[in-house]
C-alpha cells in the first residue's frame, strides 16, 4: 500500500524534472558516423566507383530492396550498370554494408529523406553515388584483387608476384 503511494509520489515529482525530449526540427542531435541512415555508394581514392556489382548487398538485404546489374568496361573492370534501392522498403539494418566486400555501400548519418510521393523513395545510381570515400578512406579493392583492369595488369596488385612465365623451367 505504501509502495503504491510512494511510486505515485515519485511519478508525480517527475513533473519538476528536466525534459529529455530533443525538439527535433529546431534542435538536432549529433549522430555518430556509425549511425545507419541513408545509403550511399562511394568511390575509391582514384575516384573510380567502388561498387563492383557482386550482388552480395542484394542477397544480404532482408527486405530485398536492392537490385542492380553488373557490367564491365572494356578493360574488364566491373561496375553496376544500374543500382536501385527502394527506400520505401529499406529497414536500415545495415546488412548491405556488412556484406559489401569493397566498402562501396555505406550507411551515413542522414535520415531526413521523407517524401510526399512514395515513388520518389526509389533511388537510382545517380542518387546514391557520391564523390567521396565515406567512412573507409584509402581502400581500393582492385589494388588487392587479382583481376586485371585498365591501368593495373596481372601481378601489379598489392602483394603479387609478376605473372608466371609458363615457358620457363627455372626454379
Amino acid at each position: 500500500m505504501f509502495s503504491i503511494i510512494r511510486s505515485m509520489w515519485i511519478t508525480f515529482m517527475h513533473m519538476f524534472h528536466k525534459r529529455e525530449t530533443v525538439q527535433y526540427p529546431e534542435q538536432k542531435n549529433k549522430l555518430t558516423t556509425r549511425w545507419r541512415g541513408r545509403i550511399v555508394l562511394t568511390r575509391d581514392p582514384d575516384m573510380g566507383e567502388r561498387c563492383v556489382g557482386c550482388y552480395l548487398c542484394a542477397a544480404a538485404c532482408p527486405v530485398d530492396c536492392i537490385s542492380l546489374q553488373a557490367t564491365e568496361d572494356e578493360h574488364g573492370r566491373r561496375y553496376p550498370e544500374f543500382f536501385r534501392i527502394n527506400f520505401s522498403r529499406c529497414i536500415f539494418c545495415g546488412y548491405c554494408e556488412e556484406a559489401c566486400p569493397t566498402y562501396a555501400i555505406q550507411l551515413i548519418p542522414d535520415f531526413e529523406m521523407g517524401e510526399y510521393d512514395r515513388q520518389n523513395l526509389v533511388y537510382e545510381k545517380k542518387d546514391l553515388l557520391i564523390d567521396g570515400q565515406g567512412k573507409y578512406p584509402g581502400y581500393n579493392y582492385y589494388k588487392v584483387a587479382g583481376l586485371a583492369i585498365g591501368g593495373k595488369d596481372k601481378g601489379e596488385a598489392q602483394n603479387e608476384d609478376p605473372p608466371v612465365d609458363v615457358r620457363s623451367l627455372l626454379p
Binding site: Y55, A58, A59, C61, V63, D64, C65, I66, S67, L68, R84, I85, N86, S88, R89, R118, Q119, L121, V122, E124
Partner: peptide, 15 residues
Amino acid sequence: RFSGRTAMLANINVS
C-alpha cells in the same frame, strides 16, 4: 536467396 524482389520493378512503380 533470391534478391531484389521489392526493387526490381520499383523504377516503374514503387508498388
